[in-house]
Amino acid sequence: MSSSAIDGVPAIELRALRKTYKLRRTETVAVDGLDLVVNRGEVFGLLGPNGAGKTTTVEICEGLTIPDSGTVSILGRQWGQGEDHAIRARIGVCLQETKFHENANVREVLSLFRSCFDQGRSVDEALALVSLEEKQDARQKSLSGGQRQRLAVATALLGDPELLFLDEPTTGLDPQSRRQLWSVVRDYQAAGGTVLLTTHYMEEAQQLCDRVAIVDRGKIIALDSPADLIKSLAAEHFILIDGEQSPSDEDLLAVPEVVAVERQTERIVLTVESVRGALPLLLQIFSARGIEIDGLSTRHATLEDVFVDLTGQSLRDGEDQ
C-alpha cells in the first residue's frame, strides 16, 4: 500500500448522488439522493436486492457511470477533473461479470492487466494471492466459475490498489469458492486495503463487512455494523416449531417474551426476545393443549431479517425483479 493511504480523506465520499435511466419513455430512478462515506481500511458492504441501485452506485464510484447530480470523491479526487488516470492507478475493480479473452491463459491475462500499472504487484504475487499458481497456464475455458472469479479479483489486485471494488464477487459460486474469496478479501484488508463490495448474500456481508448499508430503491435505508443492525431489531431470536397443529396466536403472544407469530405450512415462526426465557413457557402451552411437536429449532436474527423488517419484503423476492 502506498503512503498516500494514510492521508486523512475517506476512501469514498458520496453526496446527494442521483442517477436515472430512461428506457422507452419510462424513467427509472436507480440511485435516489444517496449519501455515503467509506473510511480507509474498512470492508464496506452495499446490501440489497437486485435492482436496488447497488451496481449503479459502485459503477459511479468506479468512473464507469456519470451521475445526474451529486458529488463523488474517490481517495480525495473527483472523476472528470483531469485526475481519472491517477484514480484508476490507485483502485482495483472487479466487475459483476467479465469474460477475459477465451484463448488467453491465466498468466497472460494477468500480464496484460499488469502492464498498464506503473507500480504494483508482480504477476506471481497476484497468482499467489488468489491461489491460482497451479492454473497459470490454463486457458479461460478450462477454468471453473470460482477460478475465473479469483482471476478477476487477481486482475483487480495487480496495481496494489488502495481501494478495491467488488461487485457481487461470489454470486453463483459454490460455498468452498466463496470462502476462498472471502479469505482473499480478509488478507487484502489486513494489509491495509479498503473494500467496497456489493452482495445479496447475508452471510457474506456478516462474515466480511465492518459496516453495511442496506439499499432499497436507490436509497440507503440503514447503515451500521452487521451486529448493530441486528441488535436494532425488536427481537433478535426466532423459535421455529413444526407440527400439524398449533396453539392460537393469542395463547402464543401471551408469553411475555414472544414479539410476533408467523404461520407457515405446518410450522410457526415465533420472534422472541430471548430463547431461554420463551422456550419453557411455550413448551408448557403445547403440552397443556396436548399438541404434538414434530420438530423444534432456534436461530439468531440475520441481516435478512433486518431487511424484511425495514422493507416488509424479503431479499429473495427482490432477485426476481
Partner: peptide, 11 residues
C-alpha cells in the same frame, strides 16, 4: 462481454 469496460477502469 464487458472486457472493454474492465480495461477502461484500469490506467
Amino acid at each position: 462481454q464487458n472486457l472493454l469496460r474492465r480495461i477502461f477502469v484500469t490506467p
